[in-house]
Nucleic acid binder design. Structure first.
Lengths: 349, 349
DNA sequence: TCCAGACCTGTTAGCGTTAACATAGCGACA
DNA sequence: TGTCGCTATGTTAACGCTAACAGGTCTGGA
């Protein structure tokens, strides 16, 4: 019936002092044991660990970080989590950071510059070991903060522009051009574009710019466009496809700004017995895994999401381990085109 | 050509002292201005804000939190981000916390108890204002930590079991029973179950238990089962459906443990001209928004994800504002059944 | 026998901020 | 005119931990 005589009343958060008292050594020694730093005899180590476990002691990183002025956090600032793109980037980041002391902390901006600024400020106030932030476009204030933070900064996803420090991504202009080229090569002539109403999604904008630019070189232009916002992307893809095809029935290609609406479009075409890719070709952007299960494989372009996450995290990890590495790395990955079943492979005539 | 004379050399992180020197007041006054706390004259306030902005000062929350022993973080511990379920829970949490000082910090466990334990330890070491954690099943050590943390704990998603402190969720047993009942009522007799190979997904397990239990009451049992792990859920849904139907061709209902594989199954049936819901009925679980775009609406059950997030965050916010509220709230939400187009509505004969 | 050096443990002084209290200035009122 | 009571500011002492240094003990080689 005897309980372990754990002091029952105080209910105040435990500190190193409590552990040190129970184990009969100094706080410093307890700290050493708990961090595996410095020499401690095996007997002492054991005593301390037992005491800590018995008390249920959890170290206070707030105090530890302040004292050591090292914070094992990496701020990750992204526009959205509901996109499936960013969870994949997170996967890449975690893969690398799991092998280090570092830990990602996520902030979401909802594509709003002022939110980004606020989130960044908030994050920096925790004095993280590094920042991974989506995009190259930031408010002046945000750029100033990034520049002055004195920690590694990696801007991800995009390489069309100037980075504050390091950058990892793909060229979205190039991705747009590449897709346009493939479409032109396949012989399509009357091309429609379907995208999101997102003036602040700079990467989508750049893809579109690259796309129209390459079409122009081939003497073509986008014949019709349609935009949406909100709602189920798959359902919207259907609706938009219906709308654009009823408005401009002789389109022979539809380029979607993301795979989800592209998938919706594909389902619409199949439902309506439209010959894909004969009568109409389709392509999306991103290569999301879920597409695998669709009746036909949508042509798409891989944005190298996991690799981007990995590379970005690697830069932070390396610099964190090796502070003198001056950096300014710029890693440009090459998006690969997947023709799927919805884009003819016919080469230039 | 004159630059603002920002001291150029030191490049050491700025502190309150720097701002206080530039603005000519004490550190305490600067602190008061920056936190909007206590009386400060308008002139002084202005001076301080100008100095802070000019220097690009960002407060150090590490030090602030240590001194005030208040940390405005809420630890959110979930099994996965790639599920679409949890991003929705996050949405609910953010909605509520955005109106407070509190900020969510996410940790991901990948359904591994030992990861959960580690993540929890890590999180608690930041002394957050509260913990929102998925599920009621935790290791002994994790339960001990939660019990001893002395902060509000909300276990979410599930209410079939004992909570450490507060809990918000649905009864997955009940959800399973409810679905079984609807299937039985519609007159289906030979029922197949398709799920994930996830012994540690307790909620899926409980749904299955409730499901078989309700079938048993109607004198039925699950006629065949099929499990998967990894890969594109949509594609796997197809494969599994093909497999189970070729093994047991006379099944007249397929119950999927999540909507994604259910959608794959639906696409398979449509491709193979199987009459849904006449020949075979289908149902999933979760009510994910993306289903809206499918050719036919999959029957499903809403898990109240956003509401769960909101309610959990509200509990933390309330208790954080009002520490004496003793708590132990238990909020059970009612999952609603959506018949969609794949489950006959015929009532009991 | 003595000392270098490895090993183990303790002491002291912050880290940058905020809580709590102290003080200065100033007008108002009996 | 003295004192109360307000506002505006400053001073001091933590918060819980770790870096840096200071011993003290023990070993082995000269």
């Amino acid at each position: 019936m005897t309980q372990t005589p754990i002091r029952p009343i105080p209910k105040r958060p435990l500190t190193l002092r409590d552990v040190s008292e129970v184990s009969g050594v100094s706080e410093m020694t307890v700290s050493r044991v708990l961090r595996n730093r410095g020499d401690v005899s095996e007997t002492t180590r054991e005593k301390v660990l037992v005491a800590a476990r018995e008390l249920g002691y959890v170290p206070n990183k707030i105090a530890g970080s302040l004292a050591s002025s090292r914070v094992n956090l990496v701020a990750v600032i992204i526009p959205s989590l509901s996109n499936m793109v960013f969870p994949e980037v997170m996967t890449g980041i975690s893969e690398i950071l799991d092998d280090t002391e570092l830990q990602p902390v996520v902030g979401v901006t909802h594509y709003k510059p002022e939110r980004e600024e606020a989130v960044l400020y908030e994050m920096l106030s925790w004095r993280p070991s590094g920042v991974i932030i989506a995009g190259l476009e930031h408010t002046e204030a945000a750029k100033a903060m990034l520049g002055a933070a004195g920690i590694p900064i990696v801007e991800i996803m995009d390489t069309d522009g100037d980075a504050v420090d390091a950058a990892v991504g793909i060229s979205h202009r190039r991705a747009g051009r590449k897709m346009a080229q493939a479409i032109v090569d396949a012989g399509y002539k009357k091309i429609g574009f379907l995208g999101t109403k997102m003036p602040l999604d700079h990467r989508a904008r750049k893809r579109f710019e690259g796309f129209t630019e390459a079409l122009a070189k081939a003497g073509l232009e986008v014949a019709d466009q349609e935009f949406y916002s909100g709602g189920s992307a798959l359902a919207k893809g259907r609706e938009m496809t219906e709308t654009i095809l009823s408005r401009t029935p002789d389109l022979d290609f539809l380029y979607y700004s993301n795979d989800m609406i592209g998938a919706g479009g594909l389902l619409y075409c199949l439902d309506n017995n439209i010959d894909v890719p004969g009568q109409i070709g389709l392509a999306g952007f991103n290569g999301i895994e879920f597409l695998d299960g669709l009746p036909r494989q949508l042509a798409t372009m891989d944005a190298c999401r996991v690799e981007i996450g990995r590379a970005a995290a690697q830069i932070i990890a390396d610099r964190s381990a090796n502070p003198e590495t001056a950096g300014k790395e710029l890693i440009t990955l090459e998006p690969s085109l997947d023709f799927g079943d919805t884009l003819k492979r016919i080469k230039k005539i």
